[in-house]
């Protein structure tokens, strides 16, 4: 754990943009903690999405797969938490544990056949899983109450100890987000993480190195589904309300935008992606149609112009400068030759 912390620090020191971003995020958190208000909800929301996006990053950024359906796992755990606490009066912790366990079990069942697929088949199969979860949440209204949603979900806490203040929730969520990030870092540097990256590079080469490709992909899928499930449970307990829209296609687009803004395949990218996208002024206003419009358009632009995200910008500039320099040298060399 310490190791991960120091390595994140080392990376930040070598990349001035990263350092500035970290400082900005820390300053924002401190400001919000002192002043509270509207930004409090934004930051809590961002922290939950850090967890979700960090898991997605593990599966897509490191392992080179694709999933449009991780909202399904957030929905399973989120709805389990919601129904068990609001309808049956369970404690949040056992409800969340059961929800996350259920989501992992589902991930295991669908993961095995889904991960044999590649390319657009994989993309469509995962999209279908996400949509099935959404449809079930809408249609199974005897349990999920359909579009109405479930309110009165128990806040985070154990027994009589509950976290109800906004500041308390924020601190808790920041701690969870940081822990999940450190875990990603730890996984990335482990043997397992290296085999993820090897699979992304070339499945054949990975197999030649003795990596069990199917098992590695399944593990990446399960871990990222676990992250999604944690995010789903955190969301319903922190907000106290859930409806199908929370875990719809909107969640997927939002998460992808965050992933690509921050930088896919980097460890700290999800933090900046989540915070920046959550801060976009429309995020928490009532006009959901403008939000999705903005996210969709932003996502297209990012995919075209900075496919490796914000964290890669200094790299990009450096390379562009270097390219200009060689251009100038070549031109002057050519002119020299002509003279």
């Amino acid at each position: 754990m310490m190791n991960s912390l120091t390595s994140i620090w080392a990376e930040a020191r070598s990349n001035p943009l990263l350092l500035v971003l970290w400082l900005a995020v820390a300053a924002l958190a401190a400001y919000v903690f002192v002043n509270g208000g509207y930004l409090m909800a934004v930051l809590q929301f961002a922290c939950i999405y850090v967890v979700f996006v960090a898991g997605l990053n593990l599966f897509m950024g490191f392992t080179g797969q694709v999933s449009f359906g991780h909202n399904a796992f957030a929905a399973i755990s989120g709805y389990t938490s919601a129904v068990l606490t609001a309808t049956y009066g369970w404690d949040p912790v056992p409800a969340a544990v059961l929800g996350i366990g259920g989501a992992l079990a589902c991930a295991l069942i669908v993961g095995y056949p889904v991960l044999r697929l590649r390319g657009h088949y994989l993309a469509m199969a995962t999209l279908a899983i996400g949509l099935i979860a959404y449809e079930v949440a809408v249609q199974w209204d005897s349990v999920t109450q359909g579009y109405m949603g479930i309110s009165g979900i128990a806040p985070l806490g154990v027994g009589r100890w509950t976290i109800t203040s906004d500041r308390g929730i924020l601190i808790f969520l920041i701690v969870v987000a940081l822990l999940s990030l450190l875990m990603v870092r730890g996984i990335r540097r482990s043997r397992l993480g290296r085999s993820f990256v090897a699979v992304a590079g070339s499945e054949d080469a990975a197999r030649a190195l003795g990596i069990d490709v199917a098992r590695t992909k399944l593990l990446a899928f399960l871990i990222s589904a676990g992250y999604a499930a944690v995010a789903g449970s955190l969301f319903v307990h922190a907000v106290g309300f859930v409806s199908p829209e929370v875990f719809g296609l909107h969640m997927v687009v939002l998460a992808f935008t965050m992933l690509y803004v921050g930088g896919i395949g980097t460890i700290v990218g999800p933090v900046f992606g989540a915070v920046i996208v959550a801060l976009l002024p429309e995020t928490f206003r009532g006009f959901k149609e403008y939000q999705d419009l903005a996210y969709g358009a932003a996502l297209v632009l990012i995919l075209i112009y900075t496919p490796r995200g914000l964290v890669s910008l200094p790299d990009l500039w450096r390379r562009r400068k270097a390219a200009q320099k060689t251009d100038v040298q070549q031109t002057s060399a050519r002119q020299g030759g002509a003279a």
């Binding site: 449009f68 687009v253 996210y295």
Partner: peptide, 13 residues
């Protein structure tokens, strides 16, 4: 795929 899906959502909105 992601870009065309995003375009779909933009057109929808």
């Amino acid at each position: 795929i992601l870009a065309t899906l995003a375009a779909q959502i933009v057109i929808e909105r």
